[in-house]
Design a binder for these strands. Structure first.
Lengths: 467, 467
DNA sequence: AAATTTGTCTATTTACATTTC
DNA sequence: GGAAATGTAAATAGACAAATT
C-alpha cells in the first residue's frame, strides 16, 4: 500500500510507523510526545485532525483518537471538538517549582515563601509545649484524623472566616498540596475533568499530570470566571470538578466577586460538580465575601493550610469535607500518609488555642503590607496586580517581552521570577506576565535589590530592544 | 431477541441489563461489584467464562472483558488465563486498618504498634534540639529532599545494615506508607502488575486499589517464594514490579533465605522488574543476609521507616532510589507532599547522630524479646510463627476455625486480632491463621490478659465445637 | 502432544455531540 | 440555521497466548 500520494499533503505532523513489534498506538503516542518535547512541535501548534491523520497513515480514526488521548493524559496536548487538537502552551516549562539549591546565587522571587518573621516565637512556644504532661503520647500512633479536640479547635476557628462545619468534617493533611492530592486521588479517576482558571496553581498541574486527571481552562474575562454561560460550558465539557483559589488567586492575584461565587455554587449544585476550594490566602486577604463552601456546602472541600500564616515547616493543613465525600477522602489520606504527624498536629492545635496565633498573623500581615508598598513604589508605571496583603504580585510585561525570555534574563541578572507559561492550562497562549513573590527574599533590603534589577531590565529593554 | 433458551443455563452469575441510559459495561460492572459486596457472590466463587456470559447476554466477548477488567482494577475479582475469573478472597475485609477509636474497650493486638518505651527520652532530646542556634530555620520551606547533611547521615548509617548508597540517592518520605505510595505513583501506571507474597502488607493493598495497580500473588511454598520457575512466572504474568518485606514478612513473619534473595535479584535484573524493598523490620531482625538492594541495586527502591525503632509520631522515612528512578520518585514525592517536615527531619537527623538512637533500639528490642517470651509460653502447643524480635506473630488456627470467625469471637472476648483474609492477595483461600501484635498492648500485663483470653477461646472451642 | 478452554489486547465499526462557518 | 468539521466513546472483530485436559 503506497502512501506516496500524501507526500505533498499539508500536515503539521507526519509520523512514521516503524516496523517494530510495539503496537502502533503506543509507538505513535511516544513519537508524538518525543516530537513535542524536542520542540519539533511548538506550544500552540495545531495537530492534524484525527481523520486526516488516519487517512494519511491508513489507520482507523479511533486509533488516532487513542494516540491523542494518551498524550492528552500526560498534559502534552489538548483537544476541543470542532476546533482541533493543539500542543499545550506549558510543555516547555516544569511545574515542579523545586526549591533547587540550598545555597542560591540569586534572589528568590519565584517560589512563594511566606514571611518568616515570628518563627523564633514558634520555637519558644514549642519549648513550652514540651513541658506539658503526657506530651510524649503524641509521638505514638494516633488516629489519622486527629483527636476530637484538635478537630473541634479548627471547626470553631474557621467560623471566624465564614466556614460552618462540625468537628466530624475536619480532616488532617500534611499541607495544602497533600490535601489537594488526597482529594484528587479519592474522588477522581484518570480521565476525569477538572475546570480551573486558564492560569492556575502549578502544584495542581503536577497532581493532575501524575494522576492522569485533565485540567480544563474555564472561560474567563479579566481574571474573573464568565458566569453567564458557565453551566452550559461545564455540561458540554463534562466537568466533574472545580479548583479555585477564591482569594488572591495564584498567580493572577484576583479575588472572586460575589456574583461569581454565587454562580459557581449554583452550577456546582445543579451539575453535582465537586469544588476544591483552596483557602490558602483567606486569612490574609481583605475579602469580605463568604467562601465558596457557604454557597455549596455539600459540594465543596475546603482546604486551610497553616503554611502561609503560621509556618510551613510543621506540614499541617486542614480539610473540611462534606459528609458524602468524607469517607473517600479520609481513605485516600490514610492510604497516602497513614497519618499526619500527631506531634506536629498537637503543636499546631495548641498554637491555635493561644494568643500567639493572632500575633503571628498580625506580624506577617504587616510585613506583607510593608513589602508590597515597596513593590508599588518601584513599579508605579507598570501594571502590577495584587493588593497590600498578597504575598506575590503579577507583573504585566511590556508587549515586546516574551515571558520566558524575561524569566531567563532576570535570572541572568540574579533574580528568580516565574513566567506565565508555568501556570498555563490548556492551549491558549499565556499573557506576557511574570509572578513576583514579595515575601520570598530574606529581607526588605534584598527585595529592593531584586526589584531594582528587574526595573533596570525592563527599562534597558525599552531602550535597546527594538520591536 | 429472546434469551429464554438460557433459562436453565448453568451460570454462577446472571446479570440483567436494565434499559437505563448508562452504558452497558459500566452498568454491569456496577452490578457485579454490588453483587460481590452484597455477598451474593462469595470469595473464591468462579464467574462465568467471558465467552459464555457474552453468549448469554448477547454481547461481544470483549465487552465482557471490559466489565471484568473494571472490577479487577478495584481488586474485587482476579482472572487467570486457562482457569477463569474468580472473586477475590479478601472482598469481605477492609484493608484500611483504621486506628478506630481513641478510647477502646478491647485490647489491641491487631494493628502493629511498636513498643512505646523510650518516647520520654525523645521528648527530652527534642528539648535539647530546641536550644540550638538557627533551629527555627527548619520551620521554613526547605529542600524537599532534605539537607545534604541529613542525607549523608542516612547513607552512612545504612552501611551498617548492608546498603551502600550515596547521599544523592537518599529521599525523604512522610513514613513508610507514604514512600510506597510515592513509588507506586511515580513508577507505575493503572493496570500495571506488581508481584508479592500471597499474604502481604495490607497498606500495599489499599495503595494498589486506590491507584488501580494490580497485585499478583507469587508462587510460594511454606512462606518462601518458589524461585525455580520464578522467571517464567514473571514473564507470563507480565510483572513490572515486586514488593517484598525480606525480614519478618508481614504478616507471616518469614525472613527470606539467601538463595531466595539471589534469585529474586537475578530475575529482577533480567526482566527489568522494579523491586520495592520494605526494610521496615531490618533493624530489629536477626537477619544476616544482605538486603535485596545489594543483589539488584539498579532495580531496587529500599525503604527505611523510623516508625518502628525510633518513634512513629514524627512521620519520617528514608528511601534509597537508584539513579534511573530517582527523578520520577522525587517528583511524585514532591507532588504528594511538597516536602517532609524539615523540622521533624532535622530532629530525626540529630537523633541519628546521637547515642540516643542505639539506646532506643536496644530498649525496644529488649521489650520485644520479653513480650515474645510471654507469647511463646502461652502458645507452646500451637504453631506460632515469628522469632524473638518480631513485633507481631502469626498464629495458625486449629482446622475447625475460620479466621474471620476467630477474629469476631476474639473481639467479643475483648481482644482485637486480624485474620488472614485481610492480607490475602488474589483468589487463593487464605490459611486459617491470625496475626497478633505483641508490642501493641500498653504493657506486658495487658498482653498476658489478652493472650489468656485467646488461649481460652482456642481451648473452649476444642471442647465445645464439634468438627 | 494436540485440542480445548479461557483471558488479553490492539484495532475497527458506528453512532453521537459539539463547534465552526 | 443548516452543513461541515472535528473530537468522543461504547461496542465489536479478530488474532494471540497461556493454561488445562
Amino acid at each position: 500500500m503506497t502512501i506516496n500520494s500524501f507526500e505533498n499533503y499539508l500536515m503539521s505532523w507526519k509520523p512514521t510507523i516503524s516496523d517494530r513489534k510495539a503496537p502502533i498506538y503506543t509507538q505513535l503516542a511516544g513519537q508524538l510526545a518525543q516530537d513535542i518535547r524536542a520542540g519539533i512541535l511548538r506550544p500552540g501548534d495545531k495537530l492534524p485532525p484525527q481523520r486526516e491523520l488516519a487517512d494519511f497513515l491508513d489507520l482507523h480514526l479511533s486509533t488516532i483518537t487513542r494516540i491523542y488521548k494518551l498524550c492528552e493524559e500526560q498534559g502534552l496536548i489538548c483537544a476541543k471538538v470542532g476546533q482541533g487538537t493543539f500542543v499545550s502552551s506549558d510543555v516547555n516549562t516544569s511545574d515542579t517549582l523545586l526549591y533547587s539549591h540550598e545555597t542560591m546565587d540569586y534572589i528568590q522571587l519565584g517560589t512563594i515563601l511566606p514571611p518568616y518573621n515570628g518563627n523564633e516565637k514558634v520555637v519558644n512556644f514549642i519549648k513550652g509545649v514540651l513541658t506539658q504532661p503526657d506530651i510524649q503520647s503524641f509521638l505514638e500512633y494516633r488516629s489519622p484524623s486527629g483527636t476530637y479536640v484538635q478537630r473541634k479547635t479548627i471547626s470553631d476557628w474557621i467560623e471566624r472566616i465564614g466556614v460552618h462545619a462540625s468537628p466530624e468534617n475536619v480532616l488532617l493533611a500534611t499541607g495544602g498540596q497533600n490535601a489537594i492530592c488526597a482529594i484528587t486521588l479519592g474522588l477522581f479517576r484518570p480521565g476525569d475533568r477538572i475546570g480551573t482558571n486558564p492560569l492556575s496553581f502549578s502544584g495542581l498541574k503536577s497532581i493532575a499530570k501524575m494522576i492522569g486527571v485533565q485540567l480544563v481552562p474555564l472561560p474567563e474575562e479579566d481574571g474573573h470566571i464568565q458566569y453567564d454561560n458557565l453551566e452550559q460550558f461545564c455540561r458540554s465539557e463534562n466537568l466533574k470538578g472545580f479548583y479555585f483559589v477564591p482569594e488572591q488567586h495564584n498567580p493572577t492575584t484576583h479575588t472572586m466577586k460575589l456574583e461569581e461565587r454565587i454562580c459557581i455554587g449554583e452550577v456546582a449544585k445543579k451539575l453535582n460538580i465537586i469544588i476544591i476550594e483552596d483557602a490558602i490566602n483567606r486569612v490574609f486577604s481583605e475579602a469580605i465575601y463568604p467562601p465558596l463552601f457557604s454557597y455549596a456546602p455539600n459540594n465543596t472541600l475546603c482546604i486551610f493550610s497553616i503554611s502561609k500564616f503560621l509556618c510551613p515547616g510543621l506540614r499541617v493543613a486542614y480539610l473540611i469535607a462534606p459528609d458524602r465525600y468524607r469517607g473517600s477522602v479520609e481513605n485516600s489520606l490514610y492510604t497516602m500518609n497513614l497519618m499526619v504527624s500527631p506531634w506536629n498536629a498537637e503543636i499546631v492545635n495548641r498554637i491555635f488555642n493561644s494568643p500567639l496565633l493572632d500575633t503571628l498573623i498580625h506580624e506577617k500581615k504587616e510585613e506583607l503590607i510593608a513589602r508590597n508598598r515597596i513593590a508599588d513604589l518601584y513599579f508605579s508605571s507598570q501594571i502590577l496586580y495584587g493588593t497590600a496583603t498578597c504575598s506575590f504580585r503579577w507583573l504585566i510585561l511590556p508587549d515586546r517581552w516574551e515571558s520566558q525570555k524575561f524569566e531567563t534574563k532576570a535570572k541572568e541578572a540574579g533574580v528568580q521570577v516565574f513566567c506565565s507559561d508555568r501556570f498555563a492550562i490548556g492551549k491558549a497562549p499565556p499573557p506576557k506576565a511574570v509572578r513576583l513573590c514579595v515575601s520570598a527574599p530574606k529581607s526588605k533590603a534584598e527585595l529592593e535589590k531584586a526589584l531594582v534589577k528587574l526595573k533596570r531590565l525592563l527599562t534597558r529593554a525599552d531602550r535597546s530592544i527594538s520591536p
